[in-house]
Design a binder for these strands. Structure first.
Length: 481
RNA sequence: CGGGGUGUAGCGCAGCUUGGUUUAGCGCGCCUGCUUUGGGAGCAGGAGGUCGGGGGUUCGAAUCCCUCCACCCCGACCA
């Protein structure tokens, strides 16, 4: 345990620079976002983490509904016969599907898969519900848990069971489906950048990286502060693949029976992992104010016995002022000193700290300290309300700007393979480079550098493939999670 | 799923090489009381362990052997 009187008061967590991966799990455990469970690969999301997820859900759920979607809930189980109907899709998931084979002692007549995703079960229902072009579009979203038996798991980033939302829509035309796919990509981008303060690059996935069974997959790619990229969300144009498998047809305006066009899109609790790795520092988490479970923590500093009553009264007054301003918590625990609490709440990433002590009572003020820049301010009680609102907004903006600058500063351009290779090796981050479009070159680059094509952005300038020299689009390469 | 590492109190560790003065210990945390509180407080007293599970060797196993499990790191696969 190292002693340091200036900056490093945190004993519980490893420094980011020393061991980023360990820092990541240390922070999660110490901040009580989650904990390991007795089940391999499964974690418990503790109240603090759950509250964060609920806040994230609230923002995203509203955006999903504002774009015309409704929530529904489909079964956890998928009969084997249904899942087996299509080959390509299930081939992508087969190794990670968990099966229910028994009910009590009795063997089931048909095995039930625990959904790794819900295309099959939802597709089978859509076939029942759709008959005419007038039934379209169907715009449904579900918040659910899914299970994928992963070999390697890490809290939030990849767990055996995880929480997510999956949108499943059906459209009359290919154009409409494509429009929906891209619309939701934008909804996600808006959510990630404005609510989570996580800047993302968006673009199309390569054939190799796309969702099993999809026509086209689009993704949002974020840069973690260790220089590795993280796929933060995906939106798929499923084409007519599942429609053909599950016989989702409708009679069109022209009287002809046609296969429907589908999309699916999802983001998961992995976003919590992203949030931790984008904003956190050596002292712990930093929560973007919009989704922070606690936006401000009020800490009474008791002083000597004769002043306690006055401090208590002032804390109560502060509480009343903040009541409809932000989500706050008064930490009046007696068992810890105030210094201890400073560190504790910094570790847990609360954006604003409000100190109320004997010296403040005389001046009718409080002390505000920002978590992101640790700046201290003395604020008169009558200005508290406006100041808190202002600071929370500023912190939200600052976190995004900081992350965007980091991402931009770590996005480099390579014109040939040697440059690409040395950039991956020495700097990490995103690397813009041209690629001919062949899987062959994609694989070669991956094998030689460990970097993969994260996405092909929409705004294009073509150039020579860093591998073979043929003409092709500029893409983002990165080592990724 | 391959390669490596770890597993002793809630957490971090020592003890293991060379089996027996160990009744398994230390720091932090925890409980009780008093004093404290503007950047991880002090004193006093106290609770807490089938040494990851199972099997074996031995008069005797935390210590040696086998096996299983979990977690971490590095690779192949994925949100």
């Amino acid at each position: 345990m190292e002693e340091n009187n200036n900056n490093n008061f945190v004993e519980a967590i490893t420094d980011k620079s020393v061991d980023f991966k360990r820092w990541y799990t240390d922070v999660i455990i110490a901040a009580q976002l989650a904990d390991y469970s007795p089940i391999k690969g499964c974690m418990v999301i503790r109240p603090y983490g759950c509250s964060l997820w609920e806040n994230m859900k609230r923002f995203l759920d509203k955006k999903i509904k504002d774009t015309g979607h409704e929530n529904a809930y489909f079964p956890l189980f998928v009969p084997e016969s249904l899942l087996a109907k299509e080959a390509e899709h299930i081939k992508g998931f087969a190794p990670e599907v968990a099966w229910v084979t028994h009910a009590g002692q009795e063997k089931l007549e048909e095995r039930l898969a625990i959904r790794p995703t819900s295309e099959a079960i939802i597709g089978s229902m859509y076939a029942k519900w759709i008959d005419s072009w007038r039934d379209l579009p169907i715009l449904i979203n579900q918040w659910a848990n899914v299970v994928r038996w992963e070999k390697v798991t890490r809290p939030f980033l990849r767990t055996t069971e995880f929480l997510w939302q999956e949108g499943h829509t059906v459209h009359r035309t290919e154009e409409e489906a494509e429009e929906e796919t891209l619309k939701m990509l934008e909804v996600y981008k808006d959510f990630m950048e404005n609510d989570l303060a996580i800047p993302v690059y968006i673009g199309r996935k390569t054939e190799r990286e796309k969702f099993a069974g999809a026509l086209r997959t689009y993704s949002l790619e974020a840069l973690m502060s260790d220089g590795k990229a993280l796929q933060a969300g995906t939106s798929h144009n499923l084409g007519q693949y599942f429609a053909k498998v599950f016989n989702i047809t409708f009679q069109d305006m022209d009287g002809e029976r046609k296969f429907a066009w589908q999309t699916s899109w999802g983001v998961s609790t992995r976003l919590i992992g992203a949030l931790i790795m984008v904003h956190g520092d050596d002292s712990g988490l930093i929560m973007p104010p919009k989704v922070a479970p606690i936006q401000a923590v009020v800490l009474p500093i008791w002083g000597n016995k004769t002043l306690e009553g006055a401090v208590e009264a002032k804390v109560k007054e502060v509480g009343e002022i903040l009541a409809d301003v932000c989500r706050f918590k008064v930490d009046d625990r007696r068992e810890h000193t105030v210094g201890w609490k400073f560190n504790e709440w910094e570790l847990r990433g609360v954006p604003l700290r409000i100190e109320v002590g004997p010296r403040d009572i005389e001046k009718n003020q409080v002390v505000l300290v920002r978590r992101d820049v640790r700046k201290k301010e003395f604020v008169p009680i009558e200005k508290l309300k406006d100041k808190v609102t202002e600071l929370l907004n500023e912190i939200q903006k600052n976190l995004f700007e900081k992350a965007r600058k980091f991402r931009d500063n770590n996005t480099r351009e390579a014109t040939n393979f040697e440059e690409l290779s040395s950039m991956v090796e020495s700097k990490q981050g995103f690397i813009k480079a041209c690629w001919c479009g062949s899987e062959d070159c994609e694989m070669k680059i991956k094998e030689k550098t460990m970097a993969t094509i994260r996405c092909i952005p929409f705004e294009q300038k073509n150039g020579k493939c860093v591998m073979c020299g043929k003409n092709g689009p500029m893409v983002y390469f990165a080592k990724s999670y």
